[in-house]
Design a protein around this nucleic acid. Structure first.
Length: 264
DNA sequence: CGCCCGATGCTCT
DNA sequence: GAGCATCGGGCGG
């Protein structure tokens, strides 16, 4: 009897999962496994933070003022990726609700589990590229910075903490905008009942975090997270609709982008 | 065409 | 916690 591969063990969530209110999807995304497969292999992590961008009365929603080239994916079927760029960085959403209803859940942070070394390499590469460009700037531009710890050894905690950082770590870019998350292959989301075993089986470079913020329930993780383990706050970085409590995160996880953000 | 402004990340105070 | 790099999208002229 052959041992199941990580891909076989973690099939994509069905479209019905995404065909619901963005708030429900964002909340239920917590604890799920986000998987990315490239020619370099599998990189994946556990979602610990997500935000909802709802279809009505949400001026922070990119689709609030109608359909454009950039946000077209949000108007498509649920279960597809909406990948957009901001400040020269990529961010990943899962599109929610039926065709024509533009809503999505922004995945803001993951706990790295599989392919951690690959994630580090990608993050370092990006940081070095940025530094190189910065160094090439003519005098009088931005200051050079000799000490940049993040280049040499990006801490595990910072590998995928934040929507753009996780996209870097998982090699997610605009080419994946519109990608169907329910087909697997390149990018998908799965139940995470045995992430630890899966990570070990995949030889995740042995650099697992020792115990950072784990809740001890990792052996047999339930389909949905214990509601008590889910925190809620305003969304990060948005100015419009600043007061809506649409950010959800795993309480106590060190991999959440901004643990201390005050609740609404 | 020009101008404004971020669903960010990094650094230093 | 505040400031800044940086660049494409969106909108007004």
């Amino acid at each position: 009897m052959r041992r199941q591969s990580i891909i076989e063990r973690c099939p994509p969530l069905p479209r019905e999962f995404y065909d619901r209110d963005a708030v429900v999807v964002a909340r239920e995304l917590l604890g799920k496994l986000l998987l990315r497969r490239t020619v370099d292999g599998i990189t994946a992590g556990r979602i610990v933070e997500a935000e909802a961008y709802v279809s009505h009365d949400d001026p922070a929603n990119h689709a609030h003022r109608g359909k454009t080239r950039r946000n077209a994916s949000m108007f498509g079927p649920p279960g597809h990726a909406y990948v957009y760029a901001i400040h020269s960085r990529w961010c990943l959403n899962a599109v929610t609700e039926p065709v024509g209803v533009a809503s999505a859940a922004l995945i803001r942070a993951i706990e790295p589990l599989i392919g951690i070394e690959r994630m580090q390499e990608r993050r370092v590469a990006r940081a070095q590229a940025d530094a190189a460009r910065r160094g090439q700037r003519p005098p009088g531009g931005a200051r050079r910075n000799s000490a940049w710890p993040a280049i040499d050894e990006p801490g595990l905690r910072d590998l995928a903490r934040g929507p753009a950082r996780l996209c870097e770590a998982l090699a997610i870019d605009g080419a994946l905008d519109g990608w169907d998350l329910t087909v697997g292959q390149r990018l998908w989301i799965a139940e995470a009942d045995a992430p630890r075993d899966a990570a070990q089986e995949h030889g995740a470079s042995g650099t697992r975090p020792t115990s950072a913020g784990d809740d001890g329930a990792s052996r047999t993780r339930p389909t949905s997270l214990d509601p008590a383990a889910i925190g809620c706050s305003r969304r990060v970085g948005v100015t419009a609709a600043h007061d809506l409590p649409l950010r959800f995160f795993v309480v106590g996880s060190p991999f959440v982008s901004r643990p201390g953000l005050r609740p609404v």
